[in-house]
């Protein structure tokens, strides 16, 4: 086995190729703060695909696709590796979901979601040239550069 930059785990999930600046957002989106198993987080590694990347390894945890796909907004190139008995069992890439609930704040200041205690809700209307979201409530469309992650 080749040398690992973050220690090995016997079983669990490895999320690799996260842009370094997005690692903490991924932690938050997946709710890892409240997780009790061992979690290894490494960041600012050199990477071929990204300028600087981060890796998160969660022992004994396998995420549902709809959960893991939420990170596609901040880590569109992330890879997901399932580890069993220290071996790579399965590798997948994240997919941008059709709908995003919570997570993103609507950039429209006059949108009800910014004034009432409620979840934001967006439809993903374009995945090809950067992600474009349409707010379910105010019906405005936004590019990725305008989005703020909660």
């Amino acid at each position: 086995m080749k040398e690992l930059i973050v220690s090995a785990i016997d079983t669990g999930t490895v999320i690799d190729h996260i842009p370094a600046k997005s690692v903490m957002q991924v932690v938050r989106i997946l709710g890892l703060e409240d997780f009790e198993n061992m979690i290894l987080i490494g960041t600012n590694f050199d990477s071929k695909k990204l300028i600087k990347k981060g890796i998160i390894k969660v022992k004994g945890k396998f995420f549902k696709p709809e959960t893991i796909n939420k990170i596609a907004l901040v880590a569109p190139q992330a890879t997901l590796t399932i580890i069993e008995d220290y071996n790579v069992k399965n590798k997948t890439i994240v997919e941008v979901p059709e709908e995003i609930i919570g997570i993103v704040q609507c950039p429209n200041q006059n949108c009800i979601t910014n004034h009432e205690e409620m979840n934001s809700e967006f439809f993903v209307v374009d995945k090809t040239n950067g992600i474009k979201l349409k707010c379910h409530f105010c019906e405005k469309t936004f590019g990725q550069e305008e989005m703020k992650i909660l």
């Binding site: 006059n110 949108c111 009800i112 004034h115 009432e116 409620m118 707010c135 379910h136 409530f137 105010c138």
Partner: peptide, 9 residues
């Protein structure tokens, strides 16, 4: 309502 999306909500 003065806020966008209030009616949908």
């Amino acid at each position: 309502h003065p806020l966008d999306g209030a009616a949908r909500f």
